[in-house]
Nucleic acid binder design. Sequence first.
DNA 1: CCTCCTTGTGAAAACGCTCGCTTAAACTTA
DNA 2: TAAGTTTAAGCGAGCGTTTTCACAAGGAGG
Lengths: 346, 346
Amino acid sequence: MTVTIKDVARRAGVSPSTVSRVLSGHPRISVETSRKVKSIMEEMGYHPNIMAKSLVSKTTNSICIILPKPAEELFTNLFFMELIRGIVTQASRSGYDVLINSGATEKEELEAVSRLLKGRRVDGAILLYSRKDDAVIDFLKNNGYPFVLVGRSDKYDDILSVDTDNLMAAYDATNHLISMGHKRIGFVSGPPNLIVSRDRLEGYRKAMEHSGLELKSEWIVEGEFLQDSGYRAMSFFMNLPSRPTALVVVDDIVSFGVLRGLNELNYSVPADLALVSFNNIPLAELSTPPISSIDIGIYHLGYTASQVLIQAIQKQNNEPGLTRRFIIPHRLIVRESSMLSPARSE
Amino acid sequence: MTVTIKDVARRAGVSPSTVSRVLSGHPRISVETSRKVKSIMEEMGYHPNIMAKSLVSKTTNSICIILPKPAEELFTNLFFMELIRGIVTQASRSGYDVLINSGATEKEELEAVSRLLKGRRVDGAILLYSRKDDAVIDFLKNNGYPFVLVGRSDKYDDILSVDTDNLMAAYDATNHLISMGHKRIGFVSGPPNLIVSRDRLEGYRKAMEHSGLELKSEWIVEGEFLQDSGYRAMSFFMNLPSRPTALVVVDDIVSFGVLRGLNELNYSVPADLALVSFNNIPLAELSTPPISSIDIGIYHLGYTASQVLIQAIQKQNNEPGLTRRFIIPHRLIVRESSMLSPARSE
DNA sequence: CCTCCTTGTGAAAACGCTCGCTTAAACTTA
DNA sequence: TAAGTTTAAGCGAGCGTTTTCACAAGGAGG
C-alpha cells in the first residue's frame, strides 16, 4: 500500500539504513548513491512515516500552544490570532508543526498538557498568558519539559519567557496623556490575577506619582479583557462627581467598549475623554476615532516565543547564565483618541 | 526514564498485552485485573506513548487545518479565529488534536499537506476557503484522504463540505435593503477566484433582478477581504455621478474600510449610504454605527466541519447516498447601518 | 467422563524507522 | 606486499504499542 523505506531500499538495491542516511544527510554516503536513492524516492512518492521516526528518535518536531481556560473569550480577541500567526510562521520555518490546544477548565488544561508532553506527542509548549499561580507551569518545570511563557511568572525567574515590559509601557502611555496636559487620569484594568494587569497598573501608578498627580482609588476599575468591561467602566467613570479627563485602558478591546458607551451617551472622544490603550490590534486604527495604543509587537512576540522554544528543544540555549527572559520593545502609536488637550477646568 | 507499558506490566505482575487491553477497555479483562493495573498506572504516572500507538494502529487522532496561502491577510481576520475555535472545541471533545498549518505559496501548501497526510501525522484535513481551482483538493481526493472543505468546490460535488448558502444569504441581504426602499444598490465583492465572492455576487444579482431594479456594472467593484478594499470601493462609489444609496459588502472587514472612508469625508451612515455585510464577526456590532450583517454562524461552521471530518475518519459516513454537503443556516442581523430609508430622490 | 464453549491471559510478530557496530572494499604507507 | 587506514554500505537490535493466535482453566451439555 504505502511505500516504506524498505520498498525504496529494495528498488534502489541498497539497504534501508542507507536510505535512512540519505534522508538525514549523513556524511558517509557517496554522491552517486545519494542521487540514485533520492530519485527513486521521488519516483515512488515516498514520504517517511513521521510516527515511526518519532518513536525511535524520541522527538516529534512539533510544539503546542496552550491557550488558557476561558478560551471563548480569548479566541475572539485578535490579540491571540496575531500571536498564533507569529508562532506558526516561525515554527513552520524551522520545520516544526504546531498543535493548538485549550481546555475548558484548569484541570482539563493540565490533563491535555501532560498527555501531549508525557505521551511524547510534542517536544515543547508555548503558554499564552500567565496567571499568578499556574499549575501548568509547575508541571512543565518539575518535569523538565521545554516551554516558554508569553508573559511572565512571578514565581520563577529562571524559566524562558518572552514578554513586553508592561510596567514601562503603561508608564509611557500615562506619560503621554500627562504630556498632553491631562491631570485627572483613570485606569481600566484587567483581571487582577493576571500579571499583565498588575504590571500595567503599576506603571500607571508610577507615572502618576512621578508627576506628582493625584492617585484616586475610585479612578481605577477592574474588569475582564472584554468590551463589556469597558462599557461598564465608562458608565462608572462618567457618573463620578469628579471624573477623569483621560483613561489608560488595559486592552484595545476594552477601549472599544468604552468608546461604544461614550458614543451612546453622545460624549465625544477625545474632547470629553481621551483614551490610550494597549496591544494595538489591527482594528485599533479603524475605530472611530482611531485609538492611540501601545504597539507591543504581538506578531513578533509570538515569533520570538517559537524561536526561543525551538532553540531550547534543540538544547541550544541551556547553558546557565544565558538570557532566559526576552523583552520585545513596545512603542506608542498616537492616534486621534488622545490628540487633544483637555479643556481648562481647574 | 519514562515509564512504559512494560514497566507497568512487570509491576502489576501481568503481561504488556494485558495492560494494553486494560487501556483500551477490552471486554475480556477481569474487573480485578483491570482495577489493579489502573491503580498501578496511576501510581507510576504512566502515559501511553502516542507515537508508538500511532505506528501500529495507523491512526493519529489528530487532524490539521490548512489555511490558504495569503495567511497574513487571513490571520488578521477574526473570521478565521472563530472558525478555528469551533474546530478546536469540537475536535477536542472527540479526543482529537488539531494541527494548524499554512504555506507561503501554493506549492509549499501542497508540500505541507502531503507531508502531513502521507507521513501519517494526521488522519484528515480541514480546508478553509476554496479557490476555484485547487491543487490541494485534487491531491486529497486522488489519494483518498479524508477531508472536508469549509466552502464549496465547483469542480467536485461528491466531497464533504460545510458551507453557507451564500447565494441565498446575499439574496436576503440585498432584499433587506430593497425592502427599506433602496433602489440604487451597489456591491463590493471579493477576489473573483474565490467561490464565495461569486456566489454572493450572484445572489445580489438575482435579488436585484427579481425586484426589477437596474443592475449597473459600475455599481459592482472587486477587491480583497481587507479594509483597504473597502476604503477604495467607497471612494470609487462616492465619485460616481449617480451613486448608490446602499451597499452590499462581501465581508465585515471590508465594511470597516468603507466606514472609515465615509467618516473621513464626513458622510454619515446610514443616511448617506446604507450598509449590509457578511459574516457578523464580533466587532460588527461594536463599530460606529454598528453594521448590519448576515450571521453565518462561523463557530458552528467550524464545529460542524470538525464533526463531519472525524466521522469520515472513523468511516461513519461513507456509504454512498449520504449527505456530503452540509449547509449551516444564516440569518440577517439588522443594525443601525441599514436602519434608515433613503431620502426620496427620483 | 469426554467434548465443547467461554473467559482471562500470555507470547510474539508486526508497525516503519534510526543508529551503533561490523564488514568489505579501496587506498595509503613503509 | 603486508599491514594499516579510510570510506561506503549492510546488519540487526531496538523504540513502545497493538493484536492475532494460542492456551489453560473452569463450566456446561450430552
